[in-house]
Structures are given as C-alpha cells and as structure tokens.
Amino acid sequence: MRSHVTCTINGDEVEFLVDDRQTLLDALRDELQLTGTKEGCATGDCGACSVLIDGRLNCSCLVFAREVEGADVLTVEGLADADHLHPIQHAFLEGAALQCGICTPGLLVAAKALLDRNLKPTEEEVRYAIAGNLCRCTGYDKVVRSILDAAAEMRDSAVVS
C-alpha cells in the first residue's frame, strides 16, 4: 500500500509517497534523495542512519516512514547553515575524526543530539552519547575529542553572541 506522508525535513515542509513497509531510512535515500544518511546494519545496531525526530535521536532504519507524519526530522544535510559548516562538522574536520566516513553522518547527528541538551558534557557523557554509533576505522578517541572541542567552541560563541 502506498501513502502520502507530510512532514518537515531540515526545516522544509515536504510531502512524499511511500510504501507502508518502507523505513524512514529508505524513504530519505530513495524517495527524497537525501543520501547523507547511511545504511549500515539496517537493524538498529550501528547508528549510521541516525536522524533526529522531534529532537530525539533515532535510527531511521527502525522507523516506518509513515510514522513521521507531522514530525520534524533533521538529517545530516540539515546541520550546515548554507555554506557554513556546523561547529560539530568543523571540529570533525579539524580533528580528523573520520576515515572511511560511512559512520560520520550518524556520529554528527548523535553529537548534535547530545550538545542540544548538554553543552558541557564530560568525556564519559560523550562516550555514552555515541555508544549507539559504530566506527570500524579510527577508533573513537578522535571522535570524542572532536565532540568535546565542538562543545567548547559552541560554549564560547554562545558567550559572545
């Protein structure tokens, strides 16, 4: 069965047609061409497909596309502000916190979920916040340090503005 879904994605109201059995991950990639969100395991273990739904971190492979009717969805494409990278993206670049890059979109979104609610996380809190995101290349130290750097940067700019 195919149905219409209307929701907000990265600030834009969108309407698309999906099969009822389609996951949000498949709808993002195949119907909306938002291929920044990656498919890793497709069973909720790896976090590569992480998105925010109404501000909450979710694996888009564990969500039916129909479920986001009326919801506010943020994917990795929504992090940057036009040509300006989000401070988390900038920190990942500066910190070389990636190698093959497949896990990166999910890690960026998971980091945003953390920093949206806690701009002064401890290293332990960062590690818990990305525990649902698997990386098989770099190890996690550079990722953790980059998220802590991004938090510091975001705290500083919050004081300035």
């Binding site: 909720g44 976090g47 992480s50 909450r56 971190l57 979710n58 694996c59 564990l62 969500v63 998971a110 979920a113 818990y128 916040a129 525990a131 649902g132 995101n133």
Partner: peptide, 9 residues
C-alpha cells in the same frame, strides 16, 4: 536497554 537511539523508541 540499548543505545540512546533505542532508548528513544
């Protein structure tokens, strides 16, 4: 029960 992603669902 699981990661933050799972906790939210």
């Amino acid at each position: 029960i699981g990661s933050d992603q799972i906790q939210n669902r």
